[in-house]
Design a protein around this nucleic acid. Structure first.
Lengths: 193, 193, 193, 193
DNA sequence: AATGAATGAGGTTTCATTCAT
DNA sequence: GATGAATGAAACCTCATTCAT
């Protein structure tokens, strides 16, 4: 992977988060990346291609982070907690990626579909964990997609608010929140102590 | 309120959902609304003003819908359930508003702040319900913002997936999902029966 | 003459001086004149027609002022001085007319030519005075146009500077300036005393 | 200095003379300069910047021409005559600059003021000559601004008429006119021979 | 006669992309 | 590979003019 390509993707991530897809120009991008405009087109076919590549890179980076220290032999709650915290940490480390997220919604739908499949592929293990949890009657018998939305997507929402400074989530509160997410999908949720 | 103004806001809602703020042109908007371009500027100062007005209208419409059939004397669960279902119904009736939601994130920050305050004002009663719930030890002692994110924002996420056809949520499943959201914030969550 | 028509011409004079022909809109004009936009078109065919009418009105007003207290039997110097002072006074009373002057230069040339002829007609008497002066060997034997430029146009230039506050011309200085203009065209100029 | 920039300024000079500031479009300008519209904005921030730059270039060019062959040791009359003729020649060589002159009057006033100062700076030597003339009792004791208006601005007026073909000024007539201008400010004007 | 909402052509400016260096 | 000047389509917005009331 060329270093210039990475510089461009980094810059794109920042600008995308700040201004949205149409909100920044290729010139702006090049300047932010400290690269000449023309050079951009050596690494990407066009703006769309660049954003798409960025999305894929973000997904890959996220997928890698999500399973940091993951232990498939530990309890389901520990697995769940590990993934949740990894996602949280990733969000704090890559605020641009979280803020830019909504921008990918407006890619042409064919591309979007391909991305969706890629995401499914990358996060297969999350799906497996949820699936196993359902089988063991630890999680409610809801569609996997729904379970994922209830627990993981909520993490993204909270992270967004935390990053923007709308609500500060730290220490004990973070533990509580994880438990809250767990409770939303747990078959036998635990009462607050 | 002028009928042309409404036509324009309706068209803007649709285009915003489809293409994002910078993604549609004023010409496109005018064509969708079946109005001349210049006419647009009789009702709005500029594109920014239009989007902002749209956001306010959406918030008002939503706020009205949210408290349809709301009974402050009923049980907290019934209150919660009522609001949740109203929000769900609103989302199905106004898919554009839900899909466009993330687009408002890129408004200039001063405007955004004003909107945020407006939202707080409009949804004050939701806050009150959550607050009362916390006092009565029905909800966990978490910040109101966090409680709202955990339960209501999740509704928006699910609605989005439902609208896009990613997951179909109906009948019994909807009841389950509401319970799941309730459980995420309930002090003594109920086990699945 | 309708009063509304006059209101419009007055407003046009001001706006023309401030912003130039293309620099103000018909809406602005109507607002300044405290009249509805549509009404403007009851009195003038279009913007060009309005400006042209304004120019004619200005020329007529000027022509009338120029010969205020004019005595064809007095000495040439007194005649000259009278016209010069009248022009000066007119300029102070109608600063817009002076400032707008250059704006008429960009009218379509056919119209412009008609204006030029009109001007010649209106100021025929000035021409006559200059002509008589040349015959009597009071003025230099130069083309009438040149004599007019040297003496009268200079008055407009000075008036413009005076109005804009670039140079203040009053009392004795005004007398001196008139003599200076006279000297530029006099056959036997007078030394300064 | 880029050649494209010069092309643009040349084109702007012509169009400004023909149509005034608001009277020509950037598209027209680009076409006249045989350059793409977008390219214009590589050399100037916007239309205002372009016009302002043009004005400065014109002032500099004029200032250079004005002192061609100027000899500070020659008699005041010769100095005066030299400057006058240089201005005249410049006007014939740059008709656009003369015709466009009045268009600069509608620049925003701050800019206008800066330009005024620049002009004062560039033509300082003219002021000095006039000042010396007054001290030596060759010119009348009038404000320098007034002396300049009386003699030099008249040159511009005559040049404008000559260029437009309203009056033809050549040979002996030109000498006469210069003497006329001199006489308007001379302490002891010379009679016509 | 008077109004002002509505129009759409045309204004200024931006931007993704190309290509000669 | 790397550059950035050049391009022209298309963006947002304004404006002279019309016409139903």
């Amino acid at each position: 992977m060329s270093v210039k390509r990475e510089q461009l993707l980094d810059a794109a991530n920042i600008l995308l988060a700040e201004k949205g897809y149409h909100g920044f120009s290729m010139k702006e991008l090049a300047q932010t990346a400290e690269i000449a405009v023309g050079t951009t087109y050596l690494y990407f076919n066009d703006k769309k291609d660049l954003i798409q590549s960025l999305h894929q890179r973000n997904l890959h980076t996220l997928a890698e982070s999500m399973f940091d220290g993951f232990d498939a032999t530990s309890s389901i709650f520990e697995q769940y907690s590990c993934i949740w915290r990894n996602f949280w940490q990733y969000s704090l480390n890559h605020p641009e990626a979280i803020l830019a997220k909504s921008q990918f919604d407006h890619l042409p739908s064919i591309v979007q579909l391909r991305e969706e499949l890629l995401a499914k592929e990358l996060f297969k293990e999350v799906g497996i964990m949820l699936h196993v949890g359902v089988e063991k009657e630890i999680f409610k018998p809801l569609p996997i997609d729904v379970l994922a939305t209830l627990s993981i997507e909520t993490c993204a929402n909270l992270a967004r608010k935390h990053i923007l400074g709308i609500t500060r989530i730290e220490g004990k509160l973070l533990d509580d929140v994880i438990l809250a997410c767990w409770n939303s999908i747990a078959f036998k949720p635990e009462s607050t102590k």
